[in-house]
Structure formats: structure tokens, C-alpha cells
Simulated assay, not measured.
Amino acid sequence: MFEIASLIVLNLVIAAFVGLLIGFMLGRASKASYTPPVDNTESMDDGAGLKPNARRSNINPIFKKNSSVDNKPLILSSPKQSGKDNLKKIKGINSKIEEDLNKIGIFHFEQIAKWTSKNCDWIEEFLQLPRCVKKYQWVDQARILASGKETVYSQKVEDNEVEVD
């Protein structure tokens, strides 16, 4: 009985060794044929007037930063047919921040009005605006503006009493 058990164990050890050897050889063979993806963004542009490092990026900006995608707010691929809202009516949003919000897919007051605390944290981290969203209460302002009402600040923006650039 001991002899049969020892032969079975010996056969298992030999089979494991042969399996590892074959796997190693197959891995090396497939590694040699692997070619990394090529960046074809230069071939898409005609290159006229562009600096060598100025290339168009087709990568979604959400994946360029270290922010956790789990807390990302609801985004849209494009604004609704009615057009995008003037996000500069929210105190704390200037032209640059509005442009950044539009780049990541935030175009409407309704979107901002639905943000949770974690969504606010994500936006602050992603756009590198420490405590700006909560400090200026973007969500509360967006709720008012989404309902069709105006805030004191948004009325000043409408009347060009406030510089938002």
C-alpha cells in the first residue's frame, strides 16, 4: 500500500513539473509575439502647425487621473437637445471650471443637483478644487437653478454684475 501511494505522489510531482515546463515554454513563445499597442494619434492629424508633444488625446480624461471611478457622478456624453446650462451661474464656477466640467460630461444643473457627498469629493479631487464644491454649496445652488428659480448670484451673472471669467 505504501508503494502504491508513493508511486502516485511521484507521478503527481512529475506531472506538475512537466506542466510547469510546458506552461513556461508557451508563455515565452507567446511573449515573443506580443507587440504593445501603437499610438496612432500622430497619424490621425496632418501635423501642420503642431508641436511634437501637442497631440490630440483620445483617452477619456476620467482615466487620466488617480481619482476613484467608483464615486464619479452621473455624466452625459453630450448636452441635451435644449442645450447646456450656464454653469457659471453657480457661485464658484468660472469659465475654466465650466469647461472642465463639460469635458467630463457635466452640462446641466440637474446633474449637479443629484450629486452626493462622495460625488462632490470626487469632483474636488479630480478637478483639483480643494473644498470648493462644498464651500460654495454647488449642489444647493444647482437644485434651485434646476427648479427654474434664480439665486442672488445667478441674477448678478445674468445682469453682468459679476465677472465669471
Rank of each mutant, 00 (worst) to 15 (best):
N66V: 14
N66T: 13
S68I: 11
S68R: 12
V69E: 11
D70F: 06
N71H: 10
I75G: 02
L76G: 00
L76P: 01
L76N: 02
L76M: 09
S78M: 11
P79E: 07
K80F: 05
Q81R: 15
Q81W: 09
G83S: 09
N86V: 05
K88D: 00
K89A: 06
K89E: 10
K89R: 14
K89L: 09
I90P: 01
G92E: 03
I93G: 00
N94S: 07
N94D: 12
K96I: 02
I97G: 00
I97P: 00
I97H: 00
I97Q: 01
I97W: 00
E98I: 02
E99C: 10
L101V: 06
L101M: 14
N102K: 09
N102L: 08
K103N: 15
I104Y: 01
G105V: 11
G105H: 10
G105Y: 06
I106D: 02
I106P: 00
F107E: 04
F107Q: 07
F107Y: 15
H108L: 11
H108N: 03
H108P: 04
H108F: 08
H108E: 07
F109Y: 15
F109W: 12
Q111M: 12
I112M: 11
I112W: 07
I112Q: 08
A113E: 07
K114A: 15
T116C: 04
T116I: 08
K118I: 04
K118V: 03
K118L: 13
N119K: 08
D121L: 13
D121C: 08
I123E: 01
E124P: 01
E125C: 13
E125A: 15
F126V: 08
L127V: 04
L127Y: 04
L129M: 15
L129T: 08
L129F: 09
R131G: 05
R131V: 05
C132M: 12
V133E: 01
K135G: 01
K135T: 07
Q137D: 14
W138E: 03
W138F: 10
V139P: 02
D140M: 09
A142V: 09
A142F: 03
R143M: 08
I144A: 08
I144K: 14
I144F: 07
I144P: 04
I144G: 04
L145N: 03
L145Q: 02
